[in-house]
Design a protein around this nucleic acid. Structure first.
Lengths: 221, 221
DNA sequence: TTTTGGTTTACGGTTTACCGTAAGGATATC
DNA sequence: GATATCCTTACGGTAAACCGTAAACCAAAA
């Protein structure tokens, strides 16, 4: 079981529940922070002091305030930490239940567990901690399909960029010009049309307006 | 100060924080529920028993599960309760910070306070409870403008319906047909164009796609 | 009743989106 | 080196959105 745990979550009230869970598992050394940057610095310092944390439990969304932050979201924090210290176990504990996010964190960035805050969130968090301490991964039932499903969401960054530009009010012509001026390829009007057509089919959208409404609802942009 | 309080929030962990606040204010009779329907029934029963609650603190978003619910959201619960029992004080405590929602709840439905969950959420909740117990209203600073601003949102239900239909993928032609078949007037293609043009100007949108993206971000649909 | 202001509807013209087809180019496979 | 495959680009036709103008309609004010 873990000995030294860091909890990162900007809502003080939720932290209380997490601390209770950790306490019930007899984990004594628990610290908490409310900013991603603080989490990063603490973990770095602990490594230098030769007393590293063996588990980080972090939220994803942190409300921005007056403090300038290097890491704007828990996602960025997780990605950076897993890159620099792959041995550090990380459990994400978030209200966010969008599959795309789970897929990215668990699949690409090797997060060890993903727990959805919710009615049974704390129970699941307990399970996650046990699983991760046994070198297993854990994801909440409601987002489990994110991993099993081989949903070929072959939507790449270019597609996302495209719909973002669209939702910002640019015409397909303007998007083409924008891509050309930024030396991004493909940039022809025809290619843009093709991509959008593919996306419309993929999301079963009747037209571009419908497409934007759908991807906004899905939280892709 | 209040004597009998009901807390409604589907995230058990957050409730703990709320209970702490209430406890620190020496409010002893505190019950909590995790479903809107339970909140409604409890309040009704308490009135019948001649021991009514004098404050309800409720979240807005409740994740749906296997239980069939009459009230799908805290918003519906608040509207129903305020209609049937205007004397019951209600504090909304939600992560939702869209002005339109605050405006609706506070302006139209006479909610007594609106507190945003966040880093200072519990502090503000304390202030809100004090204010409401003095027959004042309270809203979190970050959404205060929702009330002060006399934003001439001369957007009527027809406009909202229009953008909803648009975002559902209907063409202007189809919208016209839909309105005609439902005997809603105006229904001509020309009128639809005019309305949408007005909305585009109002929201500074370049085109229909942009408009939908904007109103979705504003939470109007 | 007439006037006036507003809304709804109709219509024509321009721009943009949508869709299929096909040519050009790069890379991989045999 | 020839062939296949995938992606990018080009083009043309149709549909839809966009935009201005004007007529028709309605209701309140004169």
């Amino acid at each position: 079981m873990f000995h030294k745990v860091l909890v990162s979550d900007d809502l003080g009230s939720i932290n209380q529940g997490v601390l209770t869970v950790l306490d019930s598992m007899s984990i004594k050394k628990v610290q908490q922070v409310q900013y991603c940057d603080d989490a990063y610095l603490r973990i770095k310092k602990a490594i230098l002091d030769d007393a590293p944390y063996d588990l980080l439990i972090t939220d994803l969304s942190f409300v921005a305030d007056y403090r300038e932050q290097q890491f704007a979201s828990g996602e960025e924090l997780v990605i950076a930490l897993k890159k620099e210290h792959p041995e550090l176990k990380i459990i994400v504990y978030s209200v966010e239940d969008r599959l795309q996010r789970v897929r990215s964190l668990m699949g690409t960035h090797n997060t060890n567990a993903y727990v959805c805050k919710g009615r049974r969130g704390l129970i699941e968090l307990g399970k996650a901690i046990k699983a991760v301490s046994n070198d297993e991964i854990y994801v909440s039932p409601q987002v489990e399909q994110a991993l099993s499903e081989k949903t070929n969401l072959e939507i790449d960054d270019f597609d996302i960029e495209l719909v973002k530009l669209l939702s910002n009010g640019l015409s397909q012509d303007e998007i083409s010009a924008h891509l050309k001026s930024n030396n991004i390829t493909p940039s022809s009007l025809s290619s843009i049309e093709k991509r959008l057509n593919k996306l419309r089919i993929q999301f079963k959208a009747n037209n571009a307006i419908h497409l934007i409404a759908i991807v906004k609802d899905l939280g892709l942009i």
